[in-house]
Amino acid sequence: MKTLTTALALIAPVHAGLRFPCSTLTTQRLDPVVEPGKIPSAHVHHIVGGNAFSATMEGDVGARATCTTCQMAEDFSNYWTAQLYFKHPTNGSYHKVPVIPVQPLLGGSDGAKSGLTVYYTQYDLTRDNLNQQKITAFKPGFRMTVGSPTEEGKPQVGLRYQCLQGQNRGPELDSFPTGPCSGGIFTTHHFPACWDGQNLDSPDHQSHMYNTIQYDGFLDAPACPSSHPVRMPQVTYETVWDTTQFNSLWQSGAPNPFVWSFEGSAAGTHADYMFGWKGDALQRAMDKSECFYDGCGSITKQAMSVANQCTIKTTVNEPVEGWLDKLPGR
């Protein structure tokens, strides 16, 4: 399987894209895509991005937000995943797993507080797609999900786990690592990139998009089908869950003790995306073709010390930290 590091070695200078850190905005039970208006939602999410985030979000999110926890100052989108918890093997209690910034590959994440790293790439980090069609940025009101908390079968394409040993990410896995990881657990959520050209959402929040990748999200992306003819940016989240403080509690030979906040199988990992870039900022970056990761100066960056000041009020007042007898909402 091609890892991200291997894929980076294949990048040609004509490819462009974005890679940037976003600090944590909030961790609570809200989900304006799958459960709009429901307070609280079914399970806890780890959320980054713009401060327009709430239980109900319609229309142009970027026009309403006034700050963002992301490095790209014109990006008021919201990005979220289920929260990871450690389940104590003896007494069955739960503890929220902290998040730490992804270590930089090209360009830093210095100053990020927890959070995750976001990619918007044109050609899945490969050099073999120079004849691909133009990349069209998302529209105001666009949203989508990848994965499902009810998934019990084979893990979906592009949803991967890696066991960090120091700075070594190790091989990509379909499920949780089977032993303690000295550097934490690294997760990747890679969204589809072919749009039907009409719907900003769909009943299952996925059918308006189509994934041409057959296995790994960072491999070549075939052309979009006629049913979903519009090529959009490849959106990917990377998160490092700091599981190290729980390694001493993981008894040798015992099953994996980590669970998502919905307490389903590892196959149920999932993520949500809600577009919120200002104006044509994202399209400007996707139109560039001379450099990678920074939009070739087309987008204003902010210091992470500024991004970290962006906050929202807690809507769902319930404990999500410390040792819990049960998962919130379960």
Rank of each mutant, 00 (worst) to 15 (best):
A55P: 00
T56A: 12
M57V: 15
M57S: 06
E58T: 15
E58K: 13
E58G: 06
E58V: 15
E58L: 12
G59L: 09
G59S: 13
G59T: 07
G59H: 09
D60K: 06
D60S: 09
D60L: 04
D60T: 05
D60Q: 06
V61E: 05
V61T: 07
V61L: 15
G62M: 05
G62Q: 03
A63Y: 07
A63C: 12
A63L: 13
A63W: 10
R64K: 15
R64I: 08
R64C: 06
R64N: 11
A65T: 04
T66W: 12
T66N: 12
C67G: 07
C67V: 00
C67R: 05
C67D: 07
C67F: 11
T68K: 08
T68C: 13
T68P: 13
T68W: 09
T68E: 13
T69Q: 10
C70D: 07
C70K: 03
Q71E: 11
Q71F: 01
Q71Y: 06
Q71D: 02
M72R: 11
M72T: 04
A73I: 01
A73K: 10
E74G: 13
D75I: 02
D75C: 08
D75A: 09
D75Q: 06
D75H: 01
F76G: 02
F76D: 00
F76T: 00
F76M: 09
S77K: 02
S77P: 08
S77D: 05
S77H: 08
N78V: 13
N78P: 12
N78D: 13
N78F: 03
Y79G: 02
Y79V: 10
Y79P: 13
W80G: 06
W80F: 12
W80N: 02
W80Y: 15
T81P: 03
T81Q: 10
T81C: 05
T81W: 02
A82Q: 10
A82R: 08
A82G: 04
Q83V: 01
L84H: 02
L84W: 06
L84E: 01
Y85Q: 09
Y85I: 08
F86A: 11
F86N: 04
K87H: 03
P89W: 00
P89M: 00
T90I: 15
T90P: 03
T90C: 04
T90Q: 14
N91A: 05
N91Y: 09
G92M: 04
G92R: 10
G92Q: 11
G92K: 11
S93G: 02
S93Y: 08
Y94H: 02
K96W: 07
K96Q: 14
V97L: 03
V97A: 00
V97S: 00
V97I: 11
V97Y: 05
P98G: 00
P98D: 00
V99C: 11
V99E: 14
I100P: 10
I100K: 14
I100W: 01
I100A: 08
P101K: 01
P101D: 00
V102P: 14
V102L: 04
V102Q: 09
Q103A: 15
Q103T: 12
P104D: 03
P104S: 01
P104E: 04
P104C: 04
P104I: 04
P104F: 07
L105T: 11
L105W: 14
L105A: 15
L106K: 08
G107E: 10
G108C: 04
G108Y: 07
G108K: 09
S109K: 03
S109V: 13
S109Q: 11
